[in-house]
Every structure is written in structure tokens, then in C-alpha cells.
């Protein structure tokens, strides 16, 4: 793993204008209403790592993924790849470099295309290999994701969920991307199948040196697969650290709450008091100060006024531990 980031997210924000129509606003003297889905996100993705992005629904994980692959424009900020900013409109070459695997393999594959048709179309459009080698390349791709040659002439409907997810991965890899964005790729799969897909991601990283942004809500899966973890809450990144570090020494109360909420296989008691009360506040009406303070058991007077930014706490083995908590260094030891 080199330290040069392959992808940098620089102060990216996304707001949606959800105001009533102009005339209605004038008539009722309403203000514009803005929904902030992402509010100044900074993130680095290093070559050859799997970075996990975790958080509750509505925290902006998928919005960020959509901005990274270029299916949504950012309102502010930029995405930098290998040192140069990606323009708002991407050409074929730029869109090739970041690819996505979706959560639901049942709706993300065209049911009327065989696997071969799906892959060869991509290979031709993007000129990945000479035309004469398209057949060979298709075969290489399906074997890369652990499927047989027979799979090439079958339709998605003939496969199980796990196999479809393999096809979706083969499709993303067909154009030889630098970065793969995987949005909850295993949460629609059964446990026994999930394990084989996780192994596939790990082998893609180890053998091809692929960089993967892995969006997930299952922290046990994250702990198993990823090198670093970024935790999102209400459109902000609140903590980033190496996987071992973040689970052993979480320095944001929200991260602690997430860890305490994991259903465990062992003893189920303990740490229950860290599970947050209530639900995330509405993104239409964000709290002042730290966004987590209404649910935080450690909140003080300053948390209601100051909006903390993501600051470095410590560094170990080249991995910086960042936390956006005013009390990050004086939080009690985690249980």
C-alpha cells in the first residue's frame, strides 16, 4: 500500500432545494428550504485498501457514493483522482475509472442480456481489449469472480443472489477501474453466500491491488474485511481510523453507540447504556453545535454551541485517527 491517495474527496457538499413553488412561497411568505445531504465531507482513499463507510440510513453514505461515481453532481467541493480534479461532466475515460456494485443484484442487472452480451458491450464501448480478444476477456472476467464458462450464455434470472452479485462485480471490473464503490454489496445475501462474496472482495484487493470503498451497516463484516473505517452521521464524517484502532479505541460517542448496538453471538449484556436514545434528527432541522449532542450521553454545554470539525488525534502505522468530537481525548475509556 502506497500512501498517495488514489481518490480524494475534498469538502464535498450536496444540498437539495426542497422549497415549495415560488408563487406559493411568495404568497405564504415562506423561506427557501434546503436539505443538506452531505455537508463538507473530506476523505482519502489509498491505493489497494478497502475503506469502510458506515452510518445509519440518511447519513449520506449512498449520496457520497453517487457523487463519486458521477451519477450525482456535488453542490460544493471536488473529487480528486490521482492529483487531478474530476470535472462535473465526465467523459468515457473518466467514468471508466470509478465503478460501482449495487446492493440488490436482482434489480441491478439487465434481465434481457446474457452475461456475455453484457460484458462484451462494455469491453467494446470502452475499447478495453482488441475486438478479437473480447471472447477471451469475457471468460477471464467470469473466472476472476469464480463462475464457470457456462455462465456466459445464461441470463441473470438463471442465477442465485450470490452468483448475480458475482456477475455485477465482473461487470464493474470489466472496464478495469481504479476504484470500486460497493454499496451494501452483501446485505441482500444469505449468510453462507455472504462469506464467499467477502472472500472475493478480499482476493480482488490482494491479487489485483484494487481500491474499494465498501459501504456497509454490518460492523462485523466491516471488521472482517476492511483496513480503515470512516463513520458518517447526518452528512458529516465523524470519525476515521484503522479498523483495529477504531473498534478497540473509538473516540466518538456515535461510533461507540454503533459498536454497542451490534447484536453479539456471545454474552449479550453490557454496554447497553451507550445505545443512543431516539433516532437521528431530521436533516431539514439540524441541531446547533455538534449534530450528535441531542443523543449523546457525554454532551456538555460547549457541544450545544460549537460545531466540531474532524481533527487528528493520534497516528499509528501511518494511519491517522481522526475524530469530530470536542471531548474526543477526555471520553472515558471504552468498555
Amino acid at each position: 500500500m502506497t500512501d498517495a491517495p488514489v481518490l480524494e474527496v475534498d469538502d464535498v457538499a450536496k444540498t437539495y432545494d426542497v422549497s415549495a413553488p415560488l408563487l406559493q412561497r411568495l404568497f405564504r411568505q415562506q423561506q427557501r428550504t434546503l436539505l443538506t445531504a452531505l455537508d463538507g465531507v473530506d476523505l482519502e482513499l489509498r491505493r489497494g485498501e478497502i475503506l469502510a463507510l458506515v452510518g445509519e440510513s440518511g447519513s449520506g453514505k449512498s449520496t457520497l457514493a453517487n457523487i463519486l461515481v458521477g451519477s450525482l453532481p456535488a453542490t460544493r467541493g471536488q473529487v480528486v483522482q490521482d492529483g487531478s480534479a474530476i470535472p462535473a461532466r465526465r467523459d468515457k475515460e473518466l467514468s471508466r475509472r470509478i465503478q460501482m456494485v449495487f446492493q440488490d443484484p436482482y434489480s441491478s442487472l439487465n434481465p434481457r442480456l446474457t452475461v456475455r452480451a453484457m460484458l462484451s458491450e462494455l469491453l467494446r464501448v470502452h475499447d478495453i481489449v482488441p475486438r478479437s480478444e473480447v471472447r477471451k476477456e469475457c471468460l477471464r472476467l467470469v473466472s476472476l469472480v469464480g463462475l464457470d464458462e457456462d455462465a456466459l450464455d445464461a441470463y441473470p434470472g438463471q442465477f442465485s443472489g450470490g452468483q448475480r452479485q458475482r456477475i455485477a462485480i465482473a461487470r464493474a471490473l470489466a472496464v478495469r477501474p481504479d476504484v470500486l464503490i460497493a454499496d451494501e454489496p452483501v446485505s441482500a445475501l444469505d449468510v453462507s453466500v455472504q462469506a464467499t462474496i467477502l472472500e472475493l472482495f478480499a482476493s480482488l484487493r490482494d491479487e489485483l491491488g484494487l481500491t474499494i470503498l465498501f459501504i456497509a451497516h454490518n460492523l462485523a463484516v466491516v471488521q472482517h474485511l476492511c483496513q480503515r473505517v470512516a463513520v458518517m452521521y447526518l452528512g458529516r464524517i465523524v470519525e476515521v481510523a484503522g479498523t483495529d484502532e477504531i473498534f478497540a479505541n473509538p473516540r466518538h460517542p456515535y461510533t461507540r453507540a454503533l459498536i454497542a448496538s451490534i447484536p453479539r453471538m456471545g454474552d449479550t449484556s453490557g454496554a447497553a447504556d451507550l445505545v443512543p436514545e431516539g433516532e437521528p434528527p431530521s436533516p431539514y432541522d439540524l441541531p446547533t453545535g455538534c449534530r450528535y449532542h441531542p443523543r449523546c450521553p457525554f454532551a456538555e454545554a460547549q457541544c450545544r454551541e460549537l460545531d466540531p470539525s474532524l481533527r487528528p488525534l493520534s497516528e499509528s502505522a501511518g494511519r491517522v485517527h481522526l475524530s469530530a468530537c470536542l471531548r474526543a481525548s477526555d471520553l472515558p475509556e471504552s468498555p
Binding site: 455472504q194 462469506a195 467477502l198 454490518n218 462485523a220 453479539r264 453471538m265 456471545g266
Partner: peptide
């Protein structure tokens, strides 16, 4: 086959 948080 399921990852267990307590056995990383």
C-alpha cells in the same frame, strides 16, 4: 460463515 464481531 458469518463474521463474529467478538472473534475478529
Amino acid at each position: 460463515s458469518a463474521p463474529d464481531f467478538d472473534q475478529p
